[in-house]
Design a protein around this nucleic acid. Structure first.
Lengths: 119, 119
DNA sequence: CTGATATATTGACTGTCGTCGATGTTCAGT
DNA sequence: ACTGAACATCGACGACAGTCAATATATCAG
């Protein structure tokens, strides 16, 4: 443990540590549950604000929530809502240090989505 | 022209022959219009019925609309609605031959989505 | 032409999503 | 303890999406 208080969000007991690894859309007809899982992650991505948020997080090693409101031009509750959606989808991971929430991308998750799309 | 009446849907004047080629989510912060375009295609994919529909189309060279109702367990208007959404997103292409509508996947479109997701 | 079939469209209903003000919670500094 | 700052949650509102019955359109068989 480091000296600062730390807590992880998502990928640590979050309701979304699902498989999403093997089934590809173009290989064989998807089963119902496979389609449900993939649709959930894609729904998290299917919003322009969240896509820009994700690209902002990806543009740096870490980024604070407070640095997202301005470029996204959204209110603080809205930004918090979108980070939560992306976090629960396993696409970003948050860590609270002091008063600030630091976000980073989970590249394996995005790679899994690409693979499920026939990568 | 073949002997049967033929007409193409999407990628032939459809409202979605958008770029979606160069900008990647993980490379640099997305511009507003880039995020809008990508979000539209992802929204078309972010539905379990449409994902299964797409995988059904991909499982064969061509498939008729009438062969989709049973495996999807949805009514005819609902299937027609979903094929329209996927078609307008450029993910599948339809061709009407006689009374039947034949669908095939547009693999380049799916590849473009993967590339936009950092492929 | 008439009837049957395949698909598209319309209209209505229901549920979900994005948004933000108000409020709650946690934490650092004094 | 008290104050201010960063973030989360709640509640409400408007907009949009998925679904299907009913209807319209197009095509083929007779």
């Amino acid at each position: 443990m480091s000296r600062t208080t730390a807590a992880r969000t998502s990928a640590g007991g979050a309701p979304t540590d699902r498989r999403l690894c093997c089934a590809s859309v173009v290989d064989a007809p998807l089963a119902d549950d496979e389609a449900d899982e993939l649709a959930k992650v894609l729904a998290a991505l299917a919003d322009p604000i969240r896509l820009r948020l994700l690209s902002l997080v990806a543009s740096q090693a870490e980024i604070c929530s407070c640095e997202l409101e301005a470029p996204l031009r959204k209110s603080q509750p809205t930004v918090s809502h979108h980070t939560k959606v992306l976090s629960e989808a396993g696409l970003i991971v948050g860590e609270k240090r002091g008063r600030w929430m630091w976000w980073r991308v989970e590249p394996t998750r995005l790679a899994a989505v690409r693979a499920a799309l026939g990568g």
